[in-house]
Design a protein around this nucleic acid. Structure first.
Lengths: 113, 113
DNA sequence: CATTCATATTTATGTATGCGCATATGTTAA
DNA sequence: TTAACATATGCGCATACATAAATATGAATG
């Protein structure tokens, strides 16, 4: 890289980086979706509301693990649960998440060619 | 959850889960974006083509780290580099990535309220 | 060539993270 | 209250991963 214009751009970039703190939320969200178990939970919840034990059964993993991951997803505002008697019904917090997953899925499909 | 219709849905889900293998690519992509350094690299490359040393300078990290992460991003087809003399110019592989980042950013912004 | 500059790779290390056992908490019903 | 069930949480193990120092590879320049 040599021309002056580019150099200027680089210097500008250096001084005008998006503050790390502001990116943390983005990173956290991507991290949340970047796990097979959590993504499977989300895709299941995209179909219907499910209790912890139902998810445990569907995904074939320990109750502890499911609960753990649901906790994370809840903390990230990706899912929310409401108690119904002994059970807790979990659902997606927001359809936005499906849009995101859909967008990425489209990208992956396209890449395959 | 008690009604018969829901029970049927759960059983159907259990048998018709998206195969784990098909989700791996999705997970990998999210994982790639779920790291502060890599996301910063991508955002920088969203502005202009950059060499490794320029990125090293801009992000204030070791050359080794930048190169390492660029390697990962390249492997994921998120960036691509072309040699230009001693340097290698890296750029985003595809504008799709920006759409993804944009979508997630929008989600995060909205969540903040 | 030999040296220098840019990038990649190897290696080491600290840290983060997924998982499930064991247990705690909370809910309902008897 | 006790028993039975559903969910959450503390803990430790195993593993993955980010970082950077040191080194290797490769390209340009004199």
């Amino acid at each position: 890289m040599e021309d002056a214009q580019h150099l200027e751009l680089v210097n500008h970039l250096k001084d005008h980086l998006v503050p790390t703190a502001e990116l943390e939320d983005l990173v956290s969200l991507f991290k949340s979706l970047g796990d097979l178990t959590r993504l499977r939970i989300i895709l299941a919840l995209a179909q219907t509301t499910l209790s912890v034990s139902e998810l445990t059964d569907i995904l074939g993993m320990s109750q502890s693990t499911i609960s753990h991951q649901l906790g994370l997803l809840k903390q990230m505002n990706l899912v929310k649960g409401t108690r119904a008697g002994k059970n807790i019904h979990y659902r997606l917090a927001d359809d936005h998440i499906l849009t995101i997953v859909g967008t990425v899925k489209a990208h992956v499909e396209e890449q395959k060619k």
